[in-house]
Simulated assay, not measured.
Amino acid sequence: MQISMKCSVAVHCLLYIWEARGKARVTSTLLAQSTGCNPVVIRNILSALKKAGLITVPRGQGGAELCRKPEQITLHEIYTALEPKGLSSLIGIHSCDGQACPVAKNIRRVLRRPYHKIEQAITSTMDSITLASMIQDLEQR
């Protein structure tokens, strides 16, 4: 289990957009070069970030910009923009429906509460991490 690579690429893109503000017009080609990803992948990620209201991208010419201050953008928002099913897709339960075993019949109910607690803890942690804090980490390196 891991958080999708799309999330790290999205954070990379957002950091780049922030760092390039006022210096360069940020395009999918430029971001593809920086991330090492295919420009199509970058355009899909930018589209998801735009749909989530995190960035704006003028049609045709590029020039992505943040829609909000970095302090107002959380890692959870970034992740959710890219993974619409959210964290519930991160923690799965194996399929054992129809088994006669009493454990198999009840495993989903048994794991529902602990998995929900894990999901809440991850969400809370991701909500406490802002793009601003990641910018600060980047600038300290």
Rank of each mutant, 00 (worst) to 15 (best):
12 H>W: 02
33 Q>I: 02
13 C>D: 11
55 I>T: 07
68 R>M: 15
134 M>Q: 13
24 A>K: 15
54 L>K: 01
81 A>G: 00
104 A>Q: 06
40 V>L: 12
6 K>Q: 13
89 S>A: 15
81 A>N: 03
79 Y>T: 03
28 S>Y: 09
79 Y>F: 05
48 A>S: 11
132 A>M: 03
59 R>P: 04
48 A>V: 07
54 L>S: 01
8 S>Y: 10
75 L>G: 01
26 V>A: 12
124 S>N: 09
101 C>I: 08
35 T>D: 04
16 Y>V: 00
117 K>D: 11
69 K>W: 08
17 I>W: 11
43 R>W: 08
80 T>R: 14
81 A>L: 05
19 E>V: 00
99 Q>P: 04
51 K>Q: 10
78 I>Y: 01
48 A>E: 08
32 A>D: 06
103 V>Q: 10
50 K>E: 15
127 D>C: 04
32 A>I: 09
96 C>R: 12
29 T>S: 08
48 A>C: 09
37 C>V: 04
90 L>Y: 08
106 N>D: 14
45 I>M: 07
59 R>K: 13
26 V>L: 00
16 Y>L: 03
61 Q>E: 13
113 R>F: 02
58 P>A: 04
91 I>M: 13
122 I>K: 07
113 R>C: 05
79 Y>S: 03
115 Y>E: 11
111 L>Q: 08
114 P>L: 00
107 I>N: 02
105 K>R: 02
80 T>A: 14
130 T>M: 08
124 S>A: 15
124 S>P: 15
66 L>I: 01
55 I>E: 07
36 G>C: 04
17 I>V: 03
113 R>I: 07
93 I>A: 00
28 S>A: 12
19 E>A: 03
12 H>I: 02
52 A>F: 15
28 S>K: 06
47 S>T: 14
119 E>I: 15
73 I>W: 07
107 I>R: 00
87 L>A: 00
10 A>I: 00
99 Q>M: 10
50 K>C: 02
73 I>N: 05
8 S>H: 01
101 C>M: 09
52 A>H: 11
25 R>F: 02
95 S>T: 14
111 L>M: 06
92 G>Y: 05
25 R>E: 06
100 A>K: 11
88 S>K: 11
120 Q>L: 13
71 E>K: 04
119 E>N: 13
56 T>M: 09
20 A>K: 14
55 I>P: 03
112 R>V: 11
98 G>C: 08
15 L>R: 00
16 Y>Q: 01
31 L>Q: 00
86 G>C: 04
110 V>T: 10
71 E>S: 09
100 A>E: 14
16 Y>N: 09
121 A>F: 09
74 T>W: 01
23 K>A: 13
120 Q>A: 06
40 V>N: 13
11 V>T: 04
14 L>E: 02
73 I>Q: 06
89 S>Q: 15
22 G>D: 10
50 K>P: 04
94 H>Y: 09
130 T>K: 03
61 Q>G: 11
65 E>F: 03
63 G>T: 03
9 V>E: 07
56 T>G: 13
85 K>V: 09
40 V>F: 07
103 V>C: 12
114 P>W: 01
66 L>Y: 08
112 R>K: 12
47 S>W: 05
76 H>E: 12
128 S>M: 05
115 Y>A: 06
39 P>Y: 04
52 A>S: 12
113 R>W: 04
9 V>I: 15
42 I>L: 03
131 L>V: 01
21 R>W: 02
71 E>N: 02
84 P>N: 09
48 A>K: 09
25 R>M: 02
57 V>P: 05
46 L>H: 10
